[in-house]
Amino acid sequence: MSDHTKLDSEIIKFIDECREKEHADSYLIAVLHKIQGKYGYLSDVHMHEVAQRLQVPSSTVSGVATFYHFFRLQPKGKYHISLCLGTACFVKGADKILEAFRSELGIELGETTSDKLFSLECSRCLGVCALAPVVTINDQVYSKVSPTQAAELINKARFEEAA
């Protein structure tokens, strides 16, 4: 698991570059973005390494990582569902879609199913309000989603996994 491996050499190089710059500690968020981009989430081991390399207290790193919602502290599911909860999507019934996902998956926003297959997250307006409500699964965008379709998407994925 990537948990126990050391940071990727590219990221280490990036950290080293940041250390050369004025206000090196201000690049902490940028470094965390790089790590999440690479590994999908921020593990304790990686955060610890960042603290050492960037020479900031570990508590600062975890403080920042937990403050910002964008940072994930757990791995994503194989199917990462992101539901737009922007105003337009809400007005067009995104709350009902959320309810459908919740009841189908048995998890709340921000959680991953125990089989690591699905994770559920919300996003804010993607700018495709005309297509509301909008759901993205991995990189695929689904528009005008109905509660039924939400349940179907899950079942289709489950079926594919089983097959």
């Binding site: 206000h23 965390l32 920042v64 964008f70």
Partner: peptide
């Protein structure tokens, strides 16, 4: 990194500085 409050200018500056 997904914090609405960081649109507020004093929070935004702290965020640029790499803080909460």
């Amino acid at each position: 990194a997904g914090a609405f409050v960081c649109g507020e200018e004093t929070a935004l500056m702290l965020s640029i500085e790499g803080k909460r």
